[in-house]
Design a protein around this nucleic acid. Sequence first.
DNA 1: CCCCGTCTTCAGAGGGTTCTCAGAAGATGC
DNA 2: GCATCTTCTGAGAACCCTCTGAAGACGGGG
Lengths: 244, 244
Amino acid sequence: MLNRTPSPALCRPDGGPVRVLVVDDEHDLTDVLCQALRYEGWEVRSAADGASAVAAARSFRPDAVVLDWMLPDTDGLAVLRELRAEAKGICVLFLTARDAVEDRIAGITAGGDDYVTKPFSLEEVLARLRGLLRRAGMAREPSGSLLVVGDLVMDEEAREVSRAGTAVELSRTEFELLRFLMRNPRRVLSKAVILDRVWAYDFGGRAHVVELYISYLRKKIDAGRTPLIHTVRGVGYVLKPEAA
Amino acid sequence: MLNRTPSPALCRPDGGPVRVLVVDDEHDLTDVLCQALRYEGWEVRSAADGASAVAAARSFRPDAVVLDWMLPDTDGLAVLRELRAEAKGICVLFLTARDAVEDRIAGITAGGDDYVTKPFSLEEVLARLRGLLRRAGMAREPSGSLLVVGDLVMDEEAREVSRAGTAVELSRTEFELLRFLMRNPRRVLSKAVILDRVWAYDFGGRAHVVELYISYLRKKIDAGRTPLIHTVRGVGYVLKPEAA
DNA sequence: CCCCGTCTTCAGAGGGTTCTCAGAAGATGC
DNA sequence: GCATCTTCTGAGAACCCTCTGAAGACGGGG
């Protein structure tokens, strides 16, 4: 899987690791999420229903909560209220079905929280969570949303990418893929891992899409210049400066 | 979800953050308001009735109070009197039902206070509050109500907008939407966020209105010229100079 | 040097998102 | 009370993105 040095950009004011509570009744989902968050260098706990979520929040005191909107015992709004009553500044990222968004979720983003619709990709959840935490003042440096690899620069918030100063237009999926590559520079990423992280968890397609999107990215980023994206035959892809 | 660096323009004379007290008995409303104000970089407390509002004001010493006109124990006027008795210079923003007591409120606002009718949008509350604080001398720079993005200029207080020197007429909603965009330049804003911030909290409509109003704005602002409003497919909209 | 599996790229179908128009309902002002 | 402006809904068209399939290029092992 993916090993990463503990997240350098985000931490609590006391210097300790960010604490995240994951609340969902689908265990497969919480397992995957928790693992990904742990690799991000954060401290993670999980709960399967509203009651234990509130209890866990009380003892664990998380900085952020990833909260399924539909829980076996209550709905997300009730849990949100309870959480807010205890810890005013807590960040909440909702997980919700696509069609539930329009009616009931409306309003929650107004408070500073955010949501992701199922089925989501892991990178999307991580990105939103990082955004929430940064805005809540957990960023070590305020401009932490700038990713740089060689002369390739990505501004995550503005969704702008430029190579050697010239802007590059990317589609949504191209952007997500490049973001994942740029967050793991000099590391060989297998197509399976890329698929797991960048594409939604219910995506049935095969690794061929990854090859396709790599080729799109090369056309837009490496065209003519010295390549940053390298193929490691039989293994995967790496993003790094220098051909070596 | 609100993205903003802690408010740079407004602060107390001592340099500390502005302090705001929110008084309303609807917890959902105070939660959202408090969170939004906190992201604005201000320090926030809340109270649910008149008595605790006065008590909170005594210990918290806020610069401004957001005050519901209808409270379970008393009405806003009584609270206002008590607040004024303690702190002469305090700013008060009233929240009131549309049909209720417009005339009586009008008399009160003569004293320098202001009011917003329910249901309001978050941006409206924030704008009024900023206006009050600026007039009370909390602005770091006096001309803090001028927003500029490229050759697009908005005078918030005069409600005037001009592109490249020529004035542009905007309806109320168009103005609110543009103000929100101009307060978050170079940042991609999702339709959900825009809906939550610019439209009233009880608005049941869907994101389609946002697309519609963006198209109105484009017709009035971008027509013919190099566009400032950009679509980020599958994500949202950005306001920024340059096509990049 | 050839073969075979892997990778790259092209072309196109299909689906989803966004834009715009036209009109109804509501608010506002005279 | 009427005219006008504003706001919102619905529908269609246009557009872009994503993914599939197929064919060719490449590279490494024998």
